[in-house]
Structures are given as structure tokens and as C-alpha cells.
Simulated scan of single mutants.
Amino acid sequence: MTADDATLLRTAADRLDLLAGRTTPGDWRTRGLLATRPEVVAHLADGATEHVAEARARSAAWIAVLSPAVAAPLSAWLRSAAGTEPVDDAAVALARTLLDRLP
């Protein structure tokens, strides 16, 4: 990996962390339908909940960043990490988080 690649990775991670800090916090889960749309509820650390739709201003950028365009490079990274020894702990943590949410 070049120094430029390392800088690129750190910059992307930093920007994702900043965006997450501005986004509706919590563990987002679907809970059926709200009118005709899926009801997405953020479960906060203090036990409270917030409908993500009610916090669109904070959530829109997060939804756009994690659009389907992210799937191919993210799944490629997971497959690449699976072929390394030792397996990257961050990749394992992400895979577990994804599998808790993927249908």
C-alpha cells in the first residue's frame, strides 16, 4: 500500500465518522409500515427511540452515502479480508454487524 492509499483510507474513515456524528444516532431497524413506507426507527443508547423519517435533515446524507453504490466495493473488501491471515478484526466486526441486519 502506498502512502497515498493509506491517506485515502484514513480520509474516507474520518469523513464517514464525521457524517455518522451528524446523523440520527442509534441502531436503525425497520418495524413494519408507516403509512405506505417502511417505518425505520433509531433505538438510542438511553432506550429512547426516534423515527428516522422525522429526522430527515440529519439522516439524508447518511442514506445517500450508504446507497447501493457502496455494496460492490464493500463486499469486495470483505472478500479480500477473508483471504488474509490473520483476518482483519474490523472486517469481522463489520460482517457481524451486517449479518445482524441483512435479510
Rank of each mutant, 00 (worst) to 15 (best):
T2Q: 02
T2F: 10
A3M: 08
A3T: 06
A3Y: 00
D5V: 14
T7D: 15
L9W: 10
L9N: 08
A12F: 09
A12Y: 13
A12T: 11
A13L: 13
A13D: 12
D14L: 13
D14K: 12
R15N: 14
R15T: 09
R15G: 00
L16E: 08
D17G: 01
D17N: 11
L18G: 05
L19V: 03
A20Y: 04
A20I: 09
R22K: 09
T23S: 15
P25N: 04
P25R: 15
G26Y: 08
G26W: 05
D27C: 05
W28T: 08
W28A: 06
T30F: 06
R31Y: 06
L33G: 00
A35N: 10
T36V: 11
P38A: 07
P38Q: 05
A42Y: 03
A42K: 13
A42D: 01
A45I: 03
A45P: 04
D46R: 10
D46A: 04
A48K: 06
T49R: 10
T49M: 11
E50F: 00
V52G: 09
A53Q: 04
A53N: 02
E54T: 03
A55C: 13
A55S: 12
A57V: 00
A61F: 01
I63D: 09
A64F: 04
V65C: 06
V65N: 03
S67L: 01
S67T: 02
P68V: 06
P68Q: 07
A69S: 12
V70F: 06
V70I: 15
A71E: 13
A72R: 13
A72E: 13
P73E: 07
L74D: 04
L74I: 01
L74C: 10
S75L: 15
S75D: 04
A76L: 11
A76S: 14
W77N: 01
L78R: 03
L78C: 00
S80E: 06
S80L: 11
S80N: 08
A82I: 00
A82F: 05
E85N: 06
P86R: 04
P86G: 01
D88I: 03
D88R: 10
D89Q: 04
D89M: 00
D89A: 15
A90F: 08
A91T: 02
A93T: 11
A93E: 09
T97E: 11
L98N: 09
L98E: 09
L99D: 11
R101N: 02
L102T: 07
P103A: 10
